[in-house]
Design a protein around this nucleic acid. Structure first.
Length: 653
RNA sequence: GGACCCGUGGCCUAGUCUGGAUAGGGCAUCGGCCUCCUAAGCCGAGGGUCGGGGGUUCGAAUCCCCCCGGGUCCGCCA
């Protein structure tokens, strides 16, 4: 017997048994919903129902009495349910189901072993074409650890949905339009389009920081001059303080990159240059499709993206499609979008700019309740087009979203929580354009920031920790551990193991916390090799592999799993049986952290078992075989879970 | 100012959607365990007004209301 979801089988039997017994004993009562939960302690069985508390209201009998009657009724019919061993009324009125482990162990272990690398990945009845857009870091500086949270979550979601049977495509949206891109391109151009030294994205990031800093200082100085004339002392103080901050950033940059810094300083100090204006102009030219601007900006972006691919590839994160934002402008899609919105009369002009009235859309289409908004909440308007004719990020995103829906049924945008309003306005724009279905299939998967202790990360001020350096440090620390623990391991394997362990630790740390909660970055939190970590899980997996490797016994499907009598063995069987259900919940509710949590508990249980019960040297060879089957099933589930998180399941470490 | 999110032992965190039995882990602290499948491990101890107050319920960390604390957003930035 093989089941794709053994725990669901057990649950179904319990539910059927309950329903039949209730119908028989209290005729006429057909409980619409039968609550069935996992009891707080294994001693109370494997499933429990609190339905008697409900029934006691109608029946006017104590819950425990009802529970006893129902339990007896079920016991009489027990021959019909192979996975239930006994039923007992306990506590103040719970009906506790005790699983038949002879059957359940065989079912769970054999199913896991037979289905192997597909075990747990229960396929949906409604497969969809899904686009997961994630990462999409602006190509102007390296990916920092906060943005890596996006990549890791997005990648895991894509893996989970693929395993669920959806056709998933991972998209990176390259934000090459806008001031930031123009700014870095400007600095790069002023330096004479230098050949990258070192890692390309770090090189671009350096130029970006210097250019941005120098331009900002220049702007602040000009503004201070203006304000001095007006003698606005309060505003002046604020500006001077701001300027001081940037000057200290400049000093830092100069000492780090003296050659490039002074080169740019010299070029930008020449009397006739006006960087602000030139950058804005470059941005306009780029949107207009000017050949030189296109060549320049694309060149800079590509250099940076080369670095991103290296970083993400190291973390086993890959994309199916790299979508250039500018393409949607040049193709006319963005323009058509704006025209259509104008036709729908959801836009208006304000000081030469074009505004989108999301509030009006929500009201006329009666969307507030549906979108979970208060009726009295007024949705702020969104600027679609600047007075100078250039577009804004969200405007382009509307056109991009429509394109995505031309090739997908569902779109999941992994985007920071701070963009909740923009994502709402985007959705409203789709409604406004009559893309009702699309709008409701547009999902904003929001996640919170990774903050430095005391302040947030700021790309502009260069206050961030890069994903690269975190991976470097993690692999370095892992290497020390591996060398200490496995000195005999060949050097090459030490390297690959420490890479997998270090990166696994970082990924796990970014996935394990509920995405909605902010994370404070500390090295010890992100690079943790102890109990609450990927290495702990990887280690458990390696231990399971090691047992199997050393046992060298074939375990057939006729193995007698009734020999597994220890509570820990039963708990492990239950966890194996429950994996498919955990997976379905995680996939359908987009909860990668639920997989992380489950996997850790499984590893935890397994380590308890490992320390206490010998497998190879068990009391009998039959018991040894049964335990070996169990270990193999644990190994399979650990590996399958780690795969969903994008963490390598190592066989040795 | 308004809207949204978060608040669980010293620190980090699960559980909250879908109410159920003594609130589950980890770090740190203390005490044990390598003649036996990898000690990145195992076993044990102490430590909790689930931010506060009301309410609903047989039953509330979980649902409702009020308050407090923290974060985010309210840009012709992304």
């Amino acid at each position: 017997m093989v089941s794709i979801n053994p725990f669901a089988d057990l649950k179904r039997q319990c539910r059927d048994a309950l329903r039949d017994a209730i119908l028989k004993i209290y005729s006429g009562r057909t409980p619409s919903d039968i609550p069935l939960n996992i009891p707080p302690d294994f001693r109370f069985g494997q499933l429990t129902s609190s339905i008697c508390f409900e029934l006691s209201k109608d029946i006017k009998t104590k819950p425990l009495e009802i529970a006893e009657k129902i339990s007896e009724g079920i016991m009489d019919e027990l021959h019909r349910y192979n996975l239930i061993e006994r039923v007992k009324a306990e506590g103040s009125g719970y009906i506790n189901f005790y699983a038949n482990f002879k059957e359940l162990s065989a079912l769970a272990i054999n199913s896991a072993r037979r289905l192997d690398d597909e075990y747990g990945y229960v396929k949906t009845n409604e497969p969809k074409i899904i686009i997961v857009e994630h990462t999409s870091v602006n190509p102007v500086h390296p990916i920092h650890i906060g943005q890596a949270r996006n990549s890791v979550l997005g990648d895991s979601i894509a893996r989970i949905l693929t395993a669920r049977g959806h056709k998933v495509s991972r998209h990176y949206y390259i934000d090459d339009v806008g001031r930031q891109s123009a700014l870095i391109a400007y600095g790069y151009e002023k330096l004479g389009r230098p050949k990258p030294e070192g890692k390309p994205d770090h090189f671009i990031g350096m130029i970006y920081s210097i250019t941005s800093c120098l331009v900002e200082i220049r702007r602040l100085k000009k503004e201070i001059e203006r304000k001095e004339a007006l003698a606005d002392s309060e505003e002046l103080n604020r500006l001077r303080k701001n300027l001081d901050e940037w000057i200290s950033v400049a000093a830092e940059l100069e000492s780090k990159y003296p050659e490039k810094f002074n080169h740019l300083l010299k070029v930008l100090s020449e009397g006739d240059v006006d960087p602000e204006h030139e950058i804005a102009e470059l941005n306009q030219k780029y949107e207009a499709g000017d050949r030189e601007a296109k060549e320049l900006i694309r060149e800079v972006c590509k250099i940076c993206l080369e670095g991103f691919k290296e970083t993400l590839g190291r973390a086993s994160i890959f994309f199916d499609s790299w979508d250039w934002e500018s393409d949607f402008i040049w193709s006319g899609d963005v323009k058509r979008c704006i025209e259509n919105l104008k036709r729908k009369a959801y836009v208006y002009e304000k000081d030469g700019a074009l505004e989108f009235d999301g509030e009006k859309v929500a009201q006329e289409l009666g969307l507030k309740e549906k979108l979970g908004l208060r009726e009295d909440y007024e949705i702020p308007s969104l600027t679609l087009v600047r007075a100078d004719g250039t577009t804004l990020y969200t405007t382009r995103d509307i056109a991009y979203s429509i394109w995505k829906f031309s090739i997908a049924d569902k779109v999941i945008n992994v985007v920071g929580m701070e963009q909740t309003l923009a994502q709402l306005q985007l959705k409203l724009a789709l409604y406004a354009l009559g893309h009702v279905n699309e709008a409701s299939n547009l999902v904003h998967f929001a996640y919170n920031l990774v903050n430095l202790p005391g302040h947030r990360m700021s790309s502009r001020r260069g206050r961030y920790v890069t994903f690269d350096e975190v991976m470097d440090e993690a692999a370095r620390r892992a290497y020390n551990e591996v060398s200490k623990r496995s000195p005999a391991m060949p050097e090459e394997e030490k390297r690959s193991v420490s890479e997998a362990v270090g990166i696994g630790a970082v990924k796990y740390a970014l996935i394990e916390t509920d995405p909605i909660k902010p994370v404070v970055f500390t090295w010890d939190r992100v690079i943790n090799f102890e109990k609450n970590s990927a290495p702990y899980i990887q280690y458990s997996h390696a231990r399971a592999c090691s047992i199997i490797r050393k046992a060298q016994i074939e375990v057939g499907e006729d193995t007698d799993y009734s020999l597994l009598k220890e509570r820990l063995e039963h708990e492990l069987v239950m966890m194996i049986a429950r994996f498919p259900e955990v997976f379905i919940d995680s996939a359908d509710n987009l909860k990668p952290n639920a997989i992380a949590d489950y996997t850790l508990s499984l590893a935890d249980k397994f380590n308890g078992f490992y320390a206490r019960y010998p497998v190879i040297k068990a009391d009998s060879s039959a018991l040894s075989r049964a335990r070996l089957g169990l270990v193999d099933a644990v190994r399979i589930v650990l590996r399958n879970s780690l795969n969903l998180l994008g963490i390598e399941a190592l066989e040795r470490m």
